[in-house]
Amino acid sequence: MDNAIDVEKSFNSKLEKNDFVEPKDWMPENYRKHLIRQISQHAHSEIIGMLPEGNWISRAPSLRAKMVLLAKVQDEGGHGLYLYTAAETLGVSRDELLGALHTGKAKYSSIFNYPTLTWADIGAVGWLVDGAAIMNQVMLQRTSYGPYSRAMIRICKEESFHQRQGYEIMCRLSFGTDAQKEMAQDALNRWWFPTMMMFGPPDKDSPNSEQAIKWRIKRETNDELRQKFVDRTVEQAQFLGLTIPDKNLKWNEAKKGYDFSEPNWEEFYNVIKGNGPCNKERLEARNKAHSDGAWVREAAQAYAEKKKENILAA
């Protein structure tokens, strides 16, 4: 009984001291559950995120663009991997996590349910979507759970090239031919509001935020991050000579930030529910890859067993 109080005290003091919680430490069941959900959602997002961008690898318009895009999509797969293994330290298997994704039970970032219709979309995704993701990720480097924090540090190191790649594409297009400029503006028109939705519903509609902040699983609120994102990105759009598709976008001197329109939250909830433009296709693609690959995994398993590799023997 004393021990129960001790371990809880120890856990709380870790949080207070900005210390890290490691896999073998005691943790509240809620904390464990919340982490599993958050880390695995993040992992699923990386894996699903490979699809809209992978869509343009075969059609990249230069050899360098093709190489860079391949490397980026590969990084995303790697990020998914780091995160799945971080989640596994909490007592859940990769098998279970993938099962939840493939059956549609698990959530992933809504943004990846939108289609990449032109090459400019690849620029917009790198610039806006990765830009938004980076804001979330930077704060998670100091999250309380050790394996999650270490995975995020690794991810952040690799992420900065992703946003640069996207913005570079937007620059080429914005300063290119008329057709390229139009392509860039069109992509911005379609990706702007969905990106804003990436930060989640307004604070007043987000009940979990407070606990997550206490647990250092979250450092800033949805609205705070959204505001920061808009403030940073408006100037970047201005440099490109592109117009952000929000008639209410206006500098507010008093708050030293931009006023902007709320995204269409009805659209957001619809997409979360599974009614977005690509939800079905994304899940079908992952399910197909998984089932097509079953015989490969079985073969690898059988081979390892046949070789009776006693990997734990001296």
Partner: peptide, 21 residues
């Protein structure tokens, strides 16, 4: 690179993409 994001499991997806690169 047609295999990227369609590999039989994640680690192998990355490995083949490395070869493609």
């Amino acid at each position: 690179s047609e295999w990227t994001s369609k590999g039989p499991f994640l680690e192998e997806d990355l490995a083949l993409t490395n070869i493609a690169l």
